[in-house]
Design a protein around this nucleic acid. Structure first.
Lengths: 161, 161
DNA sequence: ACCAAAAGGTCAAAAATAGTCAATTATGAA
DNA sequence: TTCATAATTGACTATTTTTGACCTTTTGGT
């Protein structure tokens, strides 16, 4: 009926819900979890890869070796969906340096990112752009595509965080 | 339930925090410490090698023979000049993704950057790296050079801010 | 100077975990 | 039915921790 993957997903989200803060955390042993579901350990990796991505509002960390573990943290907030949708629409496929700069200023003014975060993003955008020019001689359009992509990725990541 | 290594790490950082000058120092006997944790002495070396490296902001010195000791000192990083100097030294000309990740974790642990800032930098590094691979088919070495440069630029910018 | 005792260091093996990748199988939509 | 996508599996790889045997340095007595 329901797939193994789905069952494991349910199991993990239940655990996350137990302590009902909007953001919560859990820690497991890959081997044990696999055993309780009677599957191979790498199945757990599949579940994590397909159901607990950052896009879906989770951060997963792990440690190998003795006392290894996998830690899943939920970071999603209710309003983040909306903001991200808005982000996609505003930024679009390409964006000029000036527009990116303006947009970041606006976000900062609204308190959605800090000055340091804005600085980080701007430095990264510039670096990428410089590489595009000096190393590969890309067209302005191509560079603006790359910039837009980087801008969206970085903003998405911290809006979820 | 957590590992021996981790327990010893906690124990030592607690000791370091006790006298909470920005730079603090401590001195131990390897054999004694090993005894209080019920492990072999070389375990202590492992803890030092894996948790108290320069990258993580510590300097470790020791002396053999009668009256031997191990001294752990937290590197002073009170001014932005200090931090940037350390940054240049640690990152160098090239850096692997793994090392960058480790270094950023250490910075976050020390409270020098926030989780969001770390996330931003990691996303930017990845984006750059992906471009390097998929768009230009750069050599791993070249990509590690670009990564190191981006890492240094972003960190410098917020350390000064 | 020499030697023994008292530190600490190194290195490699073994054990305990987790990750990756590609082949295979199941499922669902057109 | 057929094809694309999702799920499952397992062989192989990578990383981290723990342990112990053997090595080096320093000190202090004779």
């Amino acid at each position: 009926m329901s797939s193994l993957t789905h069952a494991i997903e349910i199991y993990l989200t239940e655990l996350l819900n137990e302590s009902d803060a909007p953001e919560s955390m859990l820690s497991i042993r890959r081997k044990e979890l696999a055993k309780t579901f009677g599957c191979v350990p790498s199945q757990i990796n599949y579940v994590l890869r397909s159901r607990f991505t950052q896009e879906q509002g989770y951060i997963v960390e792990s440690h190998r070796g003795g006392h290894g573990y996998i830690k899943i943290e939920r970071i999603k907030q209710d309003t983040s969906e909306n903001r991200i949708e808005h982000l996609e629409k505003i930024v679009g496929e390409t964006i000029s340096w000036q527009d990116a700069h303006r947009y970041l200023s606006a976000l900062q003014k609204r308190g959605l990112i800090t000055a340091r975060e804005r600085l980080l993003i701007e430095v990264a955008l510039r670096h990428c752009d410089e590489l595009g020019v000096s190393l590969f001689d890309l067209s302005p359009h191509k560079r603006e595509t790359i910039q837009a992509e980087l801008l969206k990725r970085t903003l998405r990541s911290i809006m979820l965080a």
